[in-house]
Amino acid sequence: MSTEPAATAPLSVEGLTTSILVGTTWYDAVRDISFHVRPKETLALVGESGCGKSLTALSVMGLLPPAAVRVTSGRIVVDGVDMTAADEPTREAMRGDRIGMIFQEPMTSLNPVLPIGFQVGEALMRHRGFTRRQARERARELLELVRVPAAAERLDAYPHQFSGGMRQRVMIALALACGPRVLIADEPTTALDVTIQAQVLALMADLQEKEGLALLLITHNLGVVASVADRVMVMYGGDVVESGPVHAFFARPTHPYSEALLAAMPRIEGDLPLQPIPGQVPSLTEMPVGCRFQTRCPIRDERCAVLPPMTTVAGDPDHRVRCWARVEA
């Protein structure tokens, strides 16, 4: 792992708050989150639906639906460019060039009526002024890079002629076309079968190493996190509740939500009894004041009405948790 300081990391987010308009009121769906991702590093953003992990990714990409969602405060710096201060043409120039994104559904993210080769090369024509021929040549190299078999022959194939796993490879090729420094992957393997998921995850790890990518991986699957991430951030109700290096986190999950989430996961080995988390995530309009997990927390007390700060775990400055009961003396 590189020791590059946070300020010069390819992706750094400082105090990001993103709000959603419900009726006539703005509610904070992502609250004051900060992180950075270094080259060759994978940061996993993990949590259940509604925790704000995808919204964070969209905020970074500047792809929020303008009328109903907005970044209310914070700074997002991608490869030295402040995305929050930039105008739309600048952000557009960044997307697909310095920062790439892959989505959960490779079918709906590809245009069904355009050949694969063209779609992969399109960003190069847009951002790098490649000619059609140059773009096609580079597209072939990219498809080979993501190990699509018989890449040259499949440049003229259409998305429906590819299987789900192959389409996700194409999406990766597309995201990497301009050699971005940052890749955001939003549930990239969730729609895939496990054996294909393993292949795609291996491919991503391999490419990341080769290209020196900073990878922000958004997932609900703690198994995937354990397999590929270097660091993890657990989100609940728009807050980061725990963050730390993967080994430290799994060795010592500290926030009650992290513990509960791990206990709720059925495993294929070991003998841990399944422990559901009671209740459900409150809707955005009914979030409690203070710690948002308090409505389902087994160890809540009166302190939880105030949002706890992030504090260190076991004296490890990298492993931090947001819980009054876990504040170390």
Partner: peptide, 9 residues
Amino acid sequence: MSTSAAEFR
């Protein structure tokens, strides 16, 4: 991220 916006339609 699934917002509950739809429910407020």
